[in-house]
Design a protein around this nucleic acid. Sequence first.
DNA 1: CTTGACCCTCACACCAATGTCACAGTTTAT
DNA 2: ATAAACTGTGACATTGGTGTGAGGGTCAAG
Lengths: 123, 123
Amino acid sequence: MKIGELSARSGVSIRSLRYYEEQGLLSPLRHQNGYREYSPFAEEQVRTIQFYLSLGLTTQQISSFLHCVLKNEEAFCQEVLPIYQQKLAEIHEQIQLLESIKSNLEDRIRFILDERESNTKEK
Amino acid sequence: MKIGELSARSGVSIRSLRYYEEQGLLSPLRHQNGYREYSPFAEEQVRTIQFYLSLGLTTQQISSFLHCVLKNEEAFCQEVLPIYQQKLAEIHEQIQLLESIKSNLEDRIRFILDERESNTKEK
DNA sequence: CTTGACCCTCACACCAATGTCACAGTTTAT
DNA sequence: ATAAACTGTGACATTGGTGTGAGGGTCAAG
């Protein structure tokens, strides 16, 4: 199938499909006219890529194990676990930061509301 | 004081001080030679800016209320509360997203480890 | 007067996936 | 045959605070 069809089937923009190829995640054949020809498996492959992207992995990380996970169980691919663990640590750190900002904001919002209330009563 | 001193006192890079000015957060006087002259209050002002930035606010948001909070109690400045609330909502959303990724990663890590273990026992 | 330490402005780089043009060739349908 | 619908490459924009460097004034101490 050609790129437009793959895009329609997978819901991923043509731009992104070309980008994935540039990053080594897809390797469609080429027709003599230069058009990309994707195998029927490409659709699932694209969904797999999208899934890993949704976990916050970069195309570079994905490219390091995609060839393996497409042919095997994920658990079989040694490269995956350390990347997951590293990503989990990053996520954890980001959550910590956001939680601390959240507390800070909540405190200050509460303070402002309290302040307003006491000023209202005061009068 | 000149920019180098303010930078040293506040711990904020010269580059950032100039950027804050460009964004309307600081308005130092200028000497005839073009050098910026900061008042002694600038140090606290810069710390205030840094604090709001650490809450994840943009310079644009900060500029909308900085003039007020520098002269009044924060609770007095009407512009602050809606910005805090909006920011809190964003943070909340981001945390939700990260938490869902985190669960996903944890599940998959657990699965991989389980898989390895059962394969080990199997043999 | 010269050296070194400041200061100035302007501008590109960054991070990374995606959107969006511009411009051009190909195929398909009318 | 011509227009519409695809496809190709290339390149810039996005986000926003900060780093960094070029190229050039200013000033104080030796």
